[in-house]
Nucleic acid binder design. Structure first.
Lengths: 258, 258
DNA sequence: TAGTAAAAACTGGTATGGTAGATTTGTAAA
DNA sequence: TTTACAAATCTACCATACCAGTTTTTACTA
């Protein structure tokens, strides 16, 4: 089956080299395939199978799996199977909570720090979103949506925060791919409201607008869960990594290396 | 040699099995060694070297490296070396920003949702902190500090958020290990203030108290940077993963499945 | 036919050898 | 002494073989 996409985000590359490894490319490929639901939640596969499909050895596939497991895209069951994590409603709502808290803080910062150039840039992005809607370019629209939020973070000197938001967003993005009707006009209106508040340096209003903008997924998820129950995990299964009771220390074991 | 501990932070274990792999144990060991500065920032080492020291093959060490790289504990330079990431002031301040935004949101939630049992539990933790100070048990004190913040998150139904806070905290914890004088009495007083606000369900006051409590590291880091310049990265080196200008798709990199 | 146990066919985990690229070292020339 | 360049020695990456569990299939028994 010709499942694997060849496009993907630049999540995998090393900062030091413009020369991504095979493991990097496998990671990018699988990441994209999972995000776009080409590999649907709950589907099982094996290192060997993917390796064969991609024409590489098991080793880089295995390393890609490790990284995917760390961002909870897949769940590795030793000696058993590896499967694409189902969408956990709790995890999505948690991601939204985190994103809202962070973006609210970021947009407050932006109100106080940001340059007029940022506002111009944001308006440009929204304008391009209007055009994307006009020609029905859904992918472009979503990329521009990312760019909008990202620009706010970077424009207020919080570029590093975006890295984290982006990770959290991944779980939500799978939901987004499930939803065919995303109501782009409303998104554009909300973006415009955020820009207005930024221009007026109205901190509270900007925060409120951002929180409202990010809250829409709450209504989406319930509907989508109904439509695609097979993609969702059982309700109470939190599926998170438990860090244990107290994070106790381990004894000293490794000598520092020179 | 009898090398790898089987106890320790449960960061590494798989949910499905009580049987951590060698790679899990290597990860835990190295994670702890880096956190406690036994492996100081900037020190270089190799897969083979660590494998030899620990008496295992290179493979599980390599997988541990991958996971450590993902949380920015080490930096893998292909064909060159792997080194413990230096402490980046920008990264620490970023982590503090994220933590403050999240914990502020969490404590607001806690004011509205939390049970009286939580408040009792928090008071118990602070009481144990007092005892820890009395007998000068620094490690225990810090563990209890973690427990305090974690309990608030879990008590308000935001346990998953703690997972993320904990990751961010790691960068800050290395700084904490550098600091011999942590001013425990002030910490205890601030914890008490948070509890008071929680008991009164005073949302804004709780948030303010929490933000104030988390802001102390700002003054710490400048001093520590002076004292231990070799552990810190150059100022402008942000050292974060840059995802590129727009998250545009990358061209086809992997041959599609055969 | 139903139940059960052996065996075959998977799974991911680990060890090891080889490769390409980066760094260091050493040697020879200016 | 300094410089240039080649060889030796690192590095992490990849492929492969093997191992120990798990699951599925198969075949035999009641």
């Amino acid at each position: 089956m010709d499942i694997l996409s060849t496009k993907g985000e630049k999540l995998a590359e090393r900062p030091e080299t413009g020369d991504p490894t095979i493991a990097d490319r496998v990671f990018t490929t699988l990441h994209s395939a999972i995000l776009t639901l080409q590999m649907p939640p709950g589907s099982k596969f094996s290192e060997a199978e993917i390796a064969k499909q991609l024409g590489v050895s098991r080793q880089p596939v295995r390393e890609a799996f490790i990284r995917l497991a760390q961002i909870e895209f897949v769940r590795i069951q030793p000696k058993r199977a590896t499967e694409v994590c189902k969408i956990s409603e709790a995890a999505v709502l948690n991601a939204r909570f985190i994103r809202e808290a962070l973006e609210a803080a970021v947009v407050r910062d932006a109100c106080e720090n940001c340059s007029d150039e940022l506002i111009d840039q944001l308006e440009d992005i929204v304008e391009r979103q209007r055009k994307a809607v006009a020609v029905n370019e859904r992918e472009l629209f979503h990329d521009l949506d990312d760019a909008f939020h990202r620009s706010i973070a970077e424009g207020s000197g919080r570029g590093l925060v975006w890295t984290l938001i982006n990770e959290q967003k991944a779980q939500m993005d799978r939901v987004r791919y499930l939803s065919l009707a995303f109501n782009e006009p409303v998104v554009i209106r909300e973006h415009a409201a955020i820009i207005d508040a930024l221009r007026d340096r109205a901190t509270s209003r900007a925060e409120t607008a951002m929180r409202h903008h990010l809250s829409r997924i709450n209504s989406l998820i319930a509907v989508l869960r109904q439509q695609h129950p097979q993609y969702f995990a059982a309700t109470q299964a939190v599926q998170g990594t438990d860090a244990g009771p107290l994070n106790l220390r381990v004894p000293a074991l490794v000598k520092p290396a020179r």
